[in-house]
């Protein structure tokens, strides 16, 4: 019928043409375009659905408009975040594999685990995104009406505290409390549970006497009068938490050393090029000013708290040193 027939040879030719053009286009972009030229992978050191995962997904929804490429969130859970950390430092330093870091992975984990196959500062900081307030709670029928009451009781005999695991932030923070208030060693018996929610559950059931937790894990119970807050940590110096205007901060109570908050930020493998750092520092700053992103993370109990690449690096080092000091003193070692 027609003069032009789709012989198998022509099919083959067209297929090769298509393949060649796609490959050619792809390599062309790789070679010339400035960073970022393709989607960026963001490793999450925990399973899907944890607080760090939710933070990463909130970031991945908003930051592409400031970075210019989509973000692919990949969960690499395991070993309290060490598995993802390992994957990140073994990745190419081209800025296409980054990691959502948190206090657990880069503050407390290296402070308590001396056997990690990498160093505590083996990464490049790009920017801190957010922090989250914390709170010290007791049961509503507890005889302790203030932090002072609790500390006096602890001086007389050990009281039980639930913590979400050995060497976690609440565990180390309570040890800091013991140390700075001059309580005898072991005045708080730290009973490790599996999660933040389990530690509140243990308090409500009367199985422990006190719990130190992220605000978001206890706020509903505080509002419903099922637990009572004695002290809180506010991310804004000199201001009480807007959710808990009647609860004093640790700084007000004369214990500024307890000013510990959870935090998250974005990291890259060691030695990424400067243009990647600049790009991300700017993007993270713009994101922390984005109203949609702020609203999302505030619902999850976090507060926007930007720190630039260098300042974030110094902050992480300070966090490591603080927790390393208390872990060494008390003898908390995970993974020996």
């Amino acid at each position: 019928m027609g003069a032009f027939r789709w012989t198998s040879n022509r099919w083959l030719f067209c297929t090769w043409l298509a393949v060649a053009s796609v490959v050619g286009l792809g390599s062309g972009v790789e070679a010339q375009a400035p960073y970022p030229a393709k989607p960026i992978t963001l490793l999450v050191p925990f399973g899907a659905g944890g607080t760090t995962d939710l933070a990463a997904r909130a970031l991945a929804q908003v930051i592409p408009q400031y970075v210019g490429q989509p973000i692919i969130v990949v969960n690499k859970p395991g070993s309290s975040g060490a598995v993802a950390w390992q994957v990140m430092i073994e990745s190419p330093t081209d800025g296409y594999t980054l990691m959502m870091a948190a206090i657990g992975t880069h503050g407390t984990l290296p402070a308590v685990n001396p056997n990690l196959p990498f160093k505590h500062n083996q990464f490049t900081t790009l920017g801190r995104t957010q922090v989250n307030p914390t709170v010290l709670v007791v049961r509503p029928d507890s005889p302790w009406k203030s932090l002072k009451d609790l500390l006096e009781a602890a001086r007389k005999g050990p009281i039980k505290a639930s913590v979400p695991g050995l060497g976690t932030m609440p565990h180390l923070a309570l040890e800091i409390l013991v140390k700075t208030t001059g309580l005898p060693k072991g005045s708080l018996t730290m009973i490790p549970y599996k999660s933040d929610a389990e530690t509140v559950t243990a308090l409500m059931g009367g199985h422990v006497d006190v719990n130190y937790n992220n605000l978001i894990s206890a706020i509903s119970q505080i509002r419903a009068g099922q637990v009572r807050a004695l002290a809180a940590v506010s991310p804004v110096p000199g201001k009480r938490l807007s959710d808990l205007p009647d609860v004093p901060t640790f700084t007000e109570l004369g214990i500024p050393q307890m000013n510990v908050v959870g935090w998250r930020g974005v990291l890259a493998p060691p030695g990424v090029p400067a243009d990647v750092v600049d790009k991300w520092e700017t993007a993270v700053r713009k994101m922390t000013e984005d109203r949609g992103w702020r609203e999302t993370i505030q619902k999850l109990g976090d507060e926007p708290a930007f720190l630039g690449a260098r300042a974030f690096g110094e902050f992480v080092e300070g966090e490591y040193q603080r927790y390393r000091a208390v872990a060494t003193e008390v003898g908390i070692v995970v993974g020996r």
Partner: peptide, 28 residues
């Protein structure tokens, strides 16, 4: 009734409630 997730799946629904501006718990 208590705002306490007891497994991974209910913890996700807890997070979903938070993301929609609700505070899961007895007051819900």
């Amino acid at each position: 009734t208590l705002g306490l997730p007891s497994n991974a799946a209910t913890a996700m629904i807890f997070a979903a409630l938070l993301l929609h501006g609700l505070r899961p718990g007895p007051l819900l």
